[in-house]
Design a binder for these strands. Structure first.
Length: 414
RNA sequence: GCGGGUGUAGCUCAGUUGGUUAGAGCACCAGAUUGUGGAUCUGGGGGCCGUGGGUUCAAAUCCCAUCACUCGCCCCA
């Protein structure tokens, strides 16, 4: 055994944290249901080809971050690094309905071989939203409204802003890319080492470089908005107009780009400054060419993913759960009846903490620590009269109840 | 993959110029209270001082390596 530590970039989720994660996912699910989304799940691993073809061979995810492995049957498989490609595959292979439009919610673990940092893990969790088959800007607006509402219901409003940009259609994007490459080639002697690599592989990435020298060059670089053709401009204006109508604040950011090849038109991120270098809480965009690229019918698509770990670091605490009832036998002689009382209460849907050991004092102490509302004390004196003691753990006052009336009486301590 | 910081009890941290058996608070267990929690007092269990090597009469302390975490770069949720 190598060690008893968890693998780098993975972590154990303790109860308190598990509650927060679940809260984030629950809120996202509930709000997406309000918008008419349906929940699905897809496998945690896929054929490697699914990600290689869709994300682009030159993307960082494919070139150095995927967990690839070969199974006993010799298949080349990959632990999913993101949700969209797998969902697109499920759509084409008939695993999910293909009656368009489709509005889907999903959540689960993702895997990327990266250097861990705050808010960045090798196994992390995402919530994911996709709309397939709607080429109208209305899908963009609804998707963004959904993201904004989830953030609001999680209590993440002040620390977050929506940044949005348009990459345009294929024609616009290619035109802009050419302009950008020729501009940066002219100024390549001032570019950082990283950006010289980007110039060959993904020139749009230079736009959001943090290198000071790069920033000076970028400041005078041609703007994406000026390369958009009429259709692309009109589309983006419609999206922004839709956001205005719903009073959703946004910041138009010409430098916002997306790393993955399949994006076109709308690209956006809900970002925060509260988490250090990992600013993106929710990010996504439109991917109208993706499914066609994978060999399916031309199908418009748009989606986003949100990082559960990142969101839970900023989200409100989840609502407090129901306080338990402590069932406490005074001595071993009452254990059998205490077990039965606990069972009956649980059958009736109550949360019951049945202390396994310790004397009365210890058991009350434990009940108190677990925030129990009331203790059912079962002792020989009361049992002689077929009664049990109810102790209100907030006030300290005690009353007696018959075993028959116990469930009824305890409804006052809800 | 690259650079900076930090690793001592379950948690938060002390630990002097290297010097006896490594400490505190919180938490946990137990007693004061053999049928009554929260408060208080008393006691107890807990440590390969991240790991491995080196220097030294002597290392938690100095040196090297390594691992993990952390902050940034890259990239992204």
């Amino acid at each position: 055994m190598q060690s008893l530590k968890s693998v780098r970039g993975t972590r154990d989720i303790a109860p308190a944290e598990a509650l927060k994660y679940r809260h984030v996912v629950d809120v996202a699910r509930e709000v997406s249901l309000l918008y008419g989304f349906e929940e699905i799940a897809t496998p945690i691993f896929e054929f490697s080809e699914v990600f290689k073809r869709t994300l682009g061979e030159t993307s960082d995810i494919v070139s150095k971050e995927m967990y690839n492995f070969r199974d006993r049957g010799g298949e080349e498989l990959t632990l999913r690094p993101e949700y969209t490609a797998g969902i697109a595959r499920a759509f084409m292979s008939g695993g999910i309905p293909n009656a368009l439009p489709l509005k889907l919610f999903a959540s689960g673990p993702m895997f990327r071989y990266e250097r861990p940092q705050k808010g960045r893990l090798r196994q992390f969790h995402q919530i994911d939203i996709e709309i397939l088959g709607v080429s109208s800007f209305k899908a963009d607006v609804e998707l963004l409204a959904l993201g904004a509402q989830i953030l609001r219901e999680l209590g993440i409003t002040k620390q977050v802003r929506l940044e949005i940009n348009s990459l345009g259609d294929v024609e616009s994007r290619n035109r802009y890319r050419n302009e950008l490459v020729s501009y940066f080639r002219d100024h390549s002697s001032f570019l950082s080492e990283d950006s010289l690599v980007r110039l060959e592989r993904n020139p749009l990435r230079i736009l959001d470089s943090k290198d000071e020298s790069d920033k000076k060059i970028v400041a005078n670089a041609p703007l994406m908005s000026q390369s958009l053709n009429d259709e692309s401009t009109a589309f983006f204006d419609s999206v922004l107009g839709g956001l205005d109508d719903l009073k959703i604040d946004y910041h138009r950011n010409e430098r916002l780009v997306r790393g993955l090849d399949y994006y076109n038109h709308t690209a956006f991120e809900f970002v925060t400054d509260a988490l250090g270098a990992q600013g993106a809480l929710i990010a996504g965009g439109r991917y109208d060419r993706l499914i066609e690229t994978m060999g399916g019918p031309a199908t418009a698509g748009i989606g986003w993913a949100g990082g559960v770990e990142r969101l839970s670091m900023l989200a409100n605490d989840p609502p407090v759960s129901e306080r338990p009832i402590a069932v406490i036998p005074v001595s071993d002689k009452e254990c059998a009846i205490a077990t039965r009382v606990s069972h009956d209460l649980r059958q009736a849907g109550r949360v019951v903490e049945y202390a396994f050991r310790g004397n009365l004092s210890r058991r009350l102490k434990r009940a108190n620590r677990l925030n129990a509302r009331v203790a059912v004390v079962i002792g020989p004196d009361e049992l002689k009269r077929e009664m049990v003691m109810l102790r209100d753990l907030d006030s300290g006052s005690q009353t007696e109840a018959t075993l028959d009336a116990l469930i009824e009486k305890l409804t006052f301590y809800r």
